[in-house]
């Protein structure tokens, strides 16, 4: 295929190119928001997309999570034992709650479990207020399938990590200097409108997304 490479590049190089100025129009500005406004906007936008967004005091979040879990019949909760969220769960778990299941092996060794467990909980890298979305940078301790395979995804979001927009998140966190294996924006449970444009939630990804926003 090296011929293909050389031929394509040669064709592109052979063509004349217009000389143009360096000035480009800017994108419309995104107004700066207070933290309260960012939380409110993210909540409103994500709820429109059928996510359940619960704003909770950071000292109370575990109790809030347990309420969420007790309302449902779940066969287990997939979690990352090595993360801060995981440590908090393991330290204070009740016997009437769905059992905690750690994602500790490679997918090849636990695929069956990943595809049969009812719920997964992950932390998040941040949120986007303008469109209403979570930022996830999955890690070795919190792998990619945790937010995808289980029908219920619970995400923990620190309120002070909500950005105005994707552009401001990229700029402020200097994404261009080093991208992770996989970065994700998630705005709700999976959905489709492929049949007559009828919006239906719960396709191949989670059917439900619950976001716990840790404030205060």
């Amino acid at each position: 295929m090296s011929d293909a490479r050389a031929n394509i590049l040669a064709r592109l190089r052979a063509a004349a190119r217009p000389v143009v100025g360096d000035t480009e129009p800017d994108a419309p500005p995104v107004p700066e928001l207070s933290q309260a406004d960012k939380i409110a906007q993210l909540k409103q936008r994500m709820e429109t997309m059928h996510a359940e967004v619960i704003v909770t005091d950071r000292r109370q979040w575990l109790a809030t999570l347990k309420e969420v879990l007790r309302k449902r019949q779940l066969n287990g909760l997939l979690y990352g034992p090595q993360t801060a969220v995981g440590a908090a769960l393991a330290a204070d778990w009740d016997s009437d709650l769905p059992p905690l299941v750690g994602y500790e092996q490679s997918v090849e060794d636990c695929k069956e479990r990943l595809f049969s467990i009812d719920a997964g909980i992950t932390s998040t890298q941040g949120g986007l207020a303008d469109v209403g979305a979570l930022i996830l940078w999955p890690t070795a301790d919190e792998p990619r399938l945790m937010s995808l395979a289980p029908p219920l995804h619970i995400a923990v979001l620190e309120a002070d990590k909500i950005h105005e927009s994707l552009a401001s998140a990229m700029r402020r966190e200097r994404w261009a200097e080093g991208m992770p294996t996989n970065a994700l924006l998630i705005s709700g449970p999976s959905k489709t409108a492929d049949i007559e444009l009828v919006l239906t939630f719960g396709v191949h990804g989670p059917k439900e997304l619950v976001v716990l926003v840790l404030d205060g």
């Binding site: 294996t181 996989n182 959905k191």
Partner: peptide, 20 residues
């Protein structure tokens, strides 16, 4: 405003990572 998922892939599974 945005789709459910925006998926940005920059590499295959790195050593130690459990899926991908």
């Amino acid at each position: 405003l945005i789709t459910t998922y925006f998926n940005m892939i920059s590499s295959p599974r790195k050593p130690g990572e459990k899926d991908g």
